[in-house]
Design a binder for these strands. Structure first.
Lengths: 130, 130
DNA sequence: CAATTGCGATTACAACTGTAATCATAACCA
DNA sequence: TGGTTATGATTACAGTTGTAATCGCAATTG
C-alpha cells in the first residue's frame, strides 16, 4: 500500500518566492530569507514575516527554535510543489496531458532551437530507456 | 510595427468555466450559458450573472442587446487565453521553457504512451517542416 | 534596573474570488 | 392598468492574497 500522500497546500505567488529562498538553502532565519530574496522583490521584512507565518500555518514550512528566534525550512519539496502546480495547470487547461501543451507552443512557434533539441533528447532517452 | 497587443485580462477559475461556455458557442444569453454549464458546477443563475458581469468589466466578453436582454460573446480567443496562462505558468515555474516541464513529467513517469507518440510526431514535424 | 532592540504575533486593509440573494425595471398577461 | 415575470444591476459576505504597521515580550546594554 502506498504511503497516503498528504495533499500539497496551495502556495501563492508571493509565498512561492519565500519557498524558493528556503529550497535554495535551509534552514534559514527570517532575516536570511530576506537577504536571499534581496531586491528581487521590494519587500519590507514584515511582509516576509507574514508570508513565513502563512506558510507555517499551511504546513509548507517548519521551524526549529534557535534561542530567541526561529530557523525556517521547507516542509515540502520543490518537486512536490512543481508537481502539484503542474498537474493542476495541465488538468485545467490541457486536459491533463503534456502533448497538447507542447503542441500549443509549437503552433505559436514558441519552441526555441534549444527546446527542440532538449525535447528530442528526452524522448529519445525514454524511447530506448524502455 | 506589430499591432500593440492589448494584455489579456486575468480570468479566474470560475470565470474560465463561463468563458468555455462562450467559446464553445457564441453569442449566448445568460440562461443559455447556464444551460451549457449544466451540472458541471452546482451554480445558481445569479452566480453566472455575476461572473458574466465581472468578465464584462474586464472586457473579456462583450454583449449585444437582444430586446430586453443581452447576448454574450467572448471578446478574447481561447488561444489568446491559453497562451497568456501558459506563458505565465511556464515563466513562473520552468524558467519560461517547455523542455524542463516535459523533463519534469518524464522524471515522474507521467508521460503516457500516447503523449510519447504525440510528442515524437510533433517534433518530427517541426524538424522537417523547416 | 531602565531603556533599547530584535523578533515573532497580531492586526490592518484593499483587491480579487467564489457564491449568492435581493433590487429595480421593463415587458407581458389578465 | 395592476400584478407577475424575466433580466440585468447592486449589494453581500467570507476566504485568499499582497503588502504592511504595530504590539508585546525577551534579551541586550548602559
Amino acid at each position: 500500500m502506498k504511503e497516503a500522500m498528504k495533499p500539497i497546500p496551495h502556495i501563492s505567488e508571493a509565498e512561492s518566492v519565500v519557498m524558493e529562498a528556503l529550497w535554495s538553502h535551509s534552514p534559514r532565519s527570517a532575516e536570511e530569507v530576506a537577504i536571499a530574496i534581496g531586491d528581487e522583490r521590494a519587500w519590507q521584512e514584515s511582509t516576509i514575516k507574514t508570508l513565513l507565518n502563512r506558510l507555517l500555518r499551511k504546513n509548507a514550512v517548519k521551524v526549529l527554535k534557535d534561542g530567541r528566534r526561529y530557523l525556517y525550512s521547507a516542509a515540502i519539496t520543490r518537486e512536490q510543489w512543481l508537481h502539484s502546480e503542474s498537474k493542476g495547470f495541465l488538468d485545467r487547461l490541457f486536459d491533463g496531458r503534456v502533448a497538447p501543451l507542447v503542441a500549443h507552443f509549437s503552433r505559436h512557434r514558441k519552441l526555441s532551437k534549444a527546446d527542440l533539441e532538449e525535447l528530442k533528447r528526452l524522448i529519445g532517452e525514454l524511447d530506448d530507456g524502455k
